[in-house]
Amino acid sequence: MNIFQDANRKQIAGRRRTDWLLHMLFVIATSIGVLALCALIIDILIDGIVRLQPDLFNNFPSRKADGSGMKSALVGTIYMLLIMAPISFIFGVGAAIYLEEYAKKGRLTRLIQLNISTLAGVPSIVYGILGLALFVRLLALDRSLIAGALTMTLLVLPIIIVAAQEAIRAVPRSRRDASFALGATKWQTVSRSVMPSALPGVLTGVILAMSRAIGETAPLVMIGALTYVAFLPDGLRDSFTVIPIQVYNWLSKPQIEFKELAASGIIVLLVLLLLMNFSAILLRNKYQKNV
């Protein structure tokens, strides 16, 4: 007895053809995203590689493309990172510890949590508006390095809080119990038992948040990071520029030479991002092995 006699092979062949067609369609759609990324990188490399010379790092921007550099922007970006990193680390991790270890599951906690996820979706330019009104005008910090760094700190805080919360949550319950059972207080348990285990994960989150910050342009345009800075900032109250703003400045000029400069500026920015992401991945891998 052949139970497969009445099989409708034609219908099945048709369905399989549809499956194959859709499979191809999905592959193509997926590769469009990948190809766009490749096109973007190649386009920038082709345009920017010629200007990737010592001048770019040693010189200040000037009216002439030749010999124009981005020293002030590079230094500005690094200064901004150096100010932001500790502030956002302290506040971000502090908030995460509070939410994960101390907060009672009540209305306030839910409100804070909802608020954080909402803040993560606020367009970055709105943070710029806040920075302009709060830091530049109200606190009269002017268009300074510190005003920029504080604005960006507010921008990345939600990212850091969420990442730190995840890292803290991943620390097994048993580790807390072990500490409490030895007579440690809550804070001793948190600071000596939970946080050391969560730290690599937290740092990964902080690095990724910093890499988000160095690419941001809009909020800094808002608070008035200058587009033309031919000096290095000397103090927190000095005006400054950063790489993306410098790139934006070069991009707004019509001459082709400035476009090349913009591309090489982008290469520097991307390399910086790559390094940061790479270190975050290394950290994460090490972390995964340890837990």
Binding site: S211, R212, I214, T217
Partner: peptide, 12 residues
């Protein structure tokens, strides 16, 4: 793609 700075996309 989500991590590329928007200024880079502007250039693109």
């Amino acid at each position: 793609l989500a991590g590329v700075p928007t200024i880079v996309y502007g250039y693109f």
